Simulated assay, not measured.
Amino acid sequence: MEKRGDDKILLRAKTAASTDKSQLSAEYFDDYNKSKALQQSQQLLLVERSDRIRSLENMITTAFGQPKFYTQGDTIMSDISGINIEGSSNVSGIAGNNSIANLGTISGNVSIALNELPDATDADKPGIKELLSQLQDAIIQSTYLPEEEKAEALEQVKALAEAGKTPQESTKQKTAKTAITMLKGIFSGLPAIASLVEAGNKLLPAIANLFSLG
């Protein structure tokens, strides 16, 4: 991308060798002309979609900023590399299952993991079980978070729940640090007015403190 003058930019995109560049160019300008004709409300929807894309970019950048391995529960994932993007919607090469499981199933698995944690001894001071339960509810009830990101966020809550059984073990602390970082990346794309943002700002530091992450 290069700046041209005060109000123009030159955008270059690398394409596959087999791409019909003439067809690609025609499709681009067709979409461009349509977007110029959109009503303001429709343009705002496009802006919101762009925010979702930036949120995904933040998640990927965060993952690559971590060491070459991390723990997810008792499983070690390694060498997160080789992300390939095909067309406009297919992303491959990310460690993990590419399919998005049913949210109800994922949430149920989170609840099972939470039930294995001890209750807080002080009713006025919530423990890891209570904090994660609040975070789970906030994620499920969020109206701003897409289903795919809800599923990913709940998976991170499950990882925290499993790590919370022995929160002072170094491997569990690494798991917790990775999960919290991923959750922050997911929440970063939400509007400031979203209740999930407020919940995350309140709960994540408290959760990190229970893992002695500072």
Score class of each variant (00 low, 15 high):
Q136P: 03
A95G: 05
D74Q: 06
T166S: 06
R52Y: 07
T19P: 03
P118K: 08
L210K: 14
I139E: 00
A179N: 00
D137M: 08
E152Y: 10
N115D: 15
D79Q: 12
F211W: 11
L135F: 13
P67W: 04
L190H: 07
T175I: 00
E86W: 02
Y28P: 00
S88C: 06
A176E: 06
A16M: 06
L114M: 13
G93M: 10
F69W: 07
G200D: 15
A206H: 06
S55N: 04
P146G: 06
D79W: 01
G127A: 05
T178C: 03
L160C: 04
N90M: 09
S55I: 00
I186R: 06
E57K: 08
K184L: 11
S111M: 12
K3Q: 13
P126V: 06
L10R: 01
K21N: 09
K36E: 15
I60M: 14
A151Y: 06
A138H: 01
S170C: 00
G185K: 09
K202T: 15
N84M: 03
S50R: 08
G164N: 01
D31Y: 13
L38V: 07
N33E: 14
L210H: 13
N98S: 12
E147P: 01
E169M: 06
Q40C: 00
A179V: 02
F187D: 11
S88P: 02
P146Q: 03
F29I: 15
D6C: 02
S41N: 12
P191C: 10
L213D: 10
K150E: 14
Q168V: 09
I139N: 03
T15W: 07
P205D: 03
T105Y: 09
D7I: 12
D124H: 05
L11P: 02
K14Y: 01
I85A: 08
F211C: 09
I9V: 10
K8W: 01
G82D: 13
D122M: 01
A176I: 02
K125M: 10
S111Y: 09
N209G: 02
